[in-house]
Each structure stands twice: as C-alpha cells, then as structure tokens.
C-alpha cells in the first residue's frame, strides 16, 4: 500500500553519519592527546636544553 520507494540512501546515510560521529569521538581525543604530549615534550626540551628523548 505504500509505494515502493528507495530507502537505501536515507538508511545508509544515517548509518554512515553514525560511523562518522563515533569515529570522530574516538579520534579527536587521541589527536588532541598527541598534540598536548608533543607540546609538553617540547617545553621540557626547552627547559633542560637538550633534545634527549627517545624518539627524536
């Protein structure tokens, strides 16, 4: 009784948005953390005067 419409676009866009939001919520704090830690390491290097940490 309801005409056979193509719902795939709406359904998959919704699921895609869900995936995007979740991925962003996962990645954003991790990227921010890396940024903060990099800043802190730089500050420490400036303070002690030597770039002596392991991964430089």
């Amino acid at each position: 009784m309801i005409p056979d419409l193509d719902y795939a676009f709406y359904v998959w866009t919704s699921y895609g948005l869900f995936a995007l939001v979740m991925a962003w919520q996962f990645l954003q704090p991790r990227l921010r953390r890396r940024q903060i830690l990099a800043e802190l390491r730089e500050e420490r290097a400036l303070r002690t005067g030597g770039y002596d940490d392991a991964n430089s």
């Binding site: 919520q25 996962f26 704090p29 991790r30 921010r32 953390r33 903060i36 830690l37 802190l40 420490r44």
Partner: peptide, 24 residues
C-alpha cells in the same frame, strides 16, 4: 569518550604540575 576527553583536559590544565612529568 567522556574519560578520554577528561584525561586530556586534566593533562592540559596541569601542564606545569609535577605529576605530569611521570605521565610523560
């Protein structure tokens, strides 16, 4: 996500504190 964000905020605010050094 809540814990991840809180942790970042905490480290960000406590940059100059002593305990952060151990964390890094």
């Amino acid at each position: 996500a809540l814990l991840d964000r809180s942790r970042n905020d905490l480290v960000d605010q406590d940059r100059r504190k002593r305990w952060i050094r151990d964390v890094i």
